[in-house]
Design a protein around this nucleic acid. Structure first.
Lengths: 189, 189, 189, 189
DNA sequence: GATGAATGAGAGTTCATTCAT
DNA sequence: AATGAATGAACTCTCATTCAT
């Protein structure tokens, strides 16, 4: 029973994320989402009171997942270079793996989340960003970086999230290759 | 009178670009645009037949401008490193200077342009991208790049366009500084 | 168990009446009523088949109560003046006492009862009104009234039921005072 | 042209008032109103931004009209009894004449106006009520009233507004007769 | 060119009612 | 009796677009 409910919610959020990514939040109608999960439009509101709530839930869930994944990945690293590689690699995996839609929505539909909800997400986002800044700072101290940490992270946010628009994980370049290339732009070779 | 008409059109597109950037294309109403230029909503349609046409015009104009600027900038360079610096620098200027709104719209509202119009813009965009690829290829041949040219350009598209979300040209870091930092990620130091 | 059932029903109708009075019938949702009695919305329909049925039950119950109360009160009177005083006093007590919500609903939500149900209530209402008309007729015959009985009753319906909107039984004026004042408008002094 | 616009607005408010009175505000849809004036639903919003605005306009207009009428009527009176008769008579005319629907709405749909708007109307209403209280106070000073002025006004609000539910101006009793009868309940004979 | 009333499809949301559990 | 997910029609309101003036 609880499982059922969890499944429903998960499926609903996955479909919503997919639609938000494909069409953008404003162009996605609640009827689109409802019919994607086999519901009538009114039935959505048993699960989420407003369309905004759906966007919020998509973002909240994915940021929790990627933060956990990142902690796991970092736990298995030792050197600064390994850490930065893990940061890049894990974020790329999130963007091109199972949570692709939600990750993309988190970045590119941000402005459509209500300001109140943005604040809530920002708290979680700051926790995640702290992992990045710590890792980059260590690399900087080791003399590995080509750019100041804060600036570097922002350049990497751009280049990594933009890969969703051109990189094909099933194409000739593997995700590991891509991660290595990005690492080359971030650290001295 | 012709001058008048041109001014009208330029003002209208500038206001539209500003609104599209601030609120996104779908959330911007034609009434918003009309009232920003002191017109009633119906009067807009004497200038542009559809809302889509306005988005198209914004994109078409800005891509013409940046292509021209880029050609001018490249004409004054000689070495591959100078060329790459000019590419980065000129694109940054477009994103943070007078054409900021339109440039941002070109990148981030792309999906909201009708497919037919996307095709038209892509022709112009390819011409512009050819300038980049040529410049990066020369740097590659000179053994300066850290990453294959095609991939490098795409990483740079991401990091450069994302600067609109965090870089403040009036802040402590100058646009030249920023360009130099990005150059450091792109080429061997 | 029967007691249980009766209690349930009584509590439910009391809460419904309170909500109908506060928000009006159309603005009161079945969810409002359900949650006021600690039920889920679907469970209400084990007690009442439709929302209209709830309104009907509220009205039916209260008209039975006030008719009985009125009969009791009139039984203790002798003179025409006493009878009119009892009529006014008893109706005021119903409107400001325990059955306040239901009485108010009976008067001010009348139009929202389905026509079929209105007919049913009208039968009971006519019985109640007969008590009034009889009392007023006796006063008229005794030369006490200032206005023809039928008209007088209708004027009194208005002034008495409207007291729900301004009279505070815990304020400086007592219910007896109020009854006496209204009596002054109805009969010669 | 201005005339056209005024007519539109007046017709729209008249139809809206009629519907609000007949079905109540919550049960009246904007489509009902629109189709009553020969418009599509969306077109209403060129004239009034929200449904609440329509209710507000109905109330604001009618209270302005009745206040003016009352001032005119009182200007032609001299004695306290004449004044009270004018108060009753003029209010009855408003309730059974051209502004019947709006007057009824003002009284019986009051709770459905948004609190912010209620405040605005209350200012106007207080001005109108001041006319009543002044008139009744003069009658009281002349020893004519049977009840304290403040209470008397509230009883009269009830009985007069309730006449909308039973009095037929085309029936056997004339409006003047009715006014006289109500006067009999208010003042010593 | 400009106006602004009008259109009409469609948006997000509400809610009485149903029904499998 | 009770649940609560689901329905589906109806609600208020939005908005790109049209067009008579």
């Amino acid at each position: 029973m609880t499982q059922h409910v969890k499944d429903r919610r998960a499926v609903l959020l996955a479909e919503a994320a997919s639609l938000f990514r494909k069409k953008g939040f404003p162009r996605t109608t609640v009827r689109d989402i409802a019919s994607a999960v086999g519901l009538q439009s009114g039935s959505l509101f048993h699960h989420f009171a407003t369309k905004d709530d759906i966007l919020f839930a998509v973002m909240e869930d994915v940021i929790a997942v990627i933060t956990e994944n990142m902690l796991d990945a970092l736990a298995e690293t030792e050197t600064p270079r390994q850490k930065v590689r893990a940061l890049i690699r894990t974020e790329l995996e999130a963007i091109h793996g199972a949570s692709r839609d939600a990750m993309t929505v988190l970045v590119f539909e941000w402005r459509h989340l209500s300001p109140a909800r943005q604040k809530e997400i920002l708290v979680l986002r700051d926790q995640y960003e702290a992992l990045w800044l710590t890792g980059l700072a260590q690399a900087a101290q080791a003399g590995l970086t080509v750019v100041e940490s804060f600036t570097l992270r922002r350049l990497l946010v751009g280049s990594i999230s933009w890969t969703v628009n051109w990189f094909d994980p099933d194409g000739p370049m593997s995700l590991d290759d891509l991660a290595e290339q990005i690492l080359n732009t971030a650290l001295k070779t």
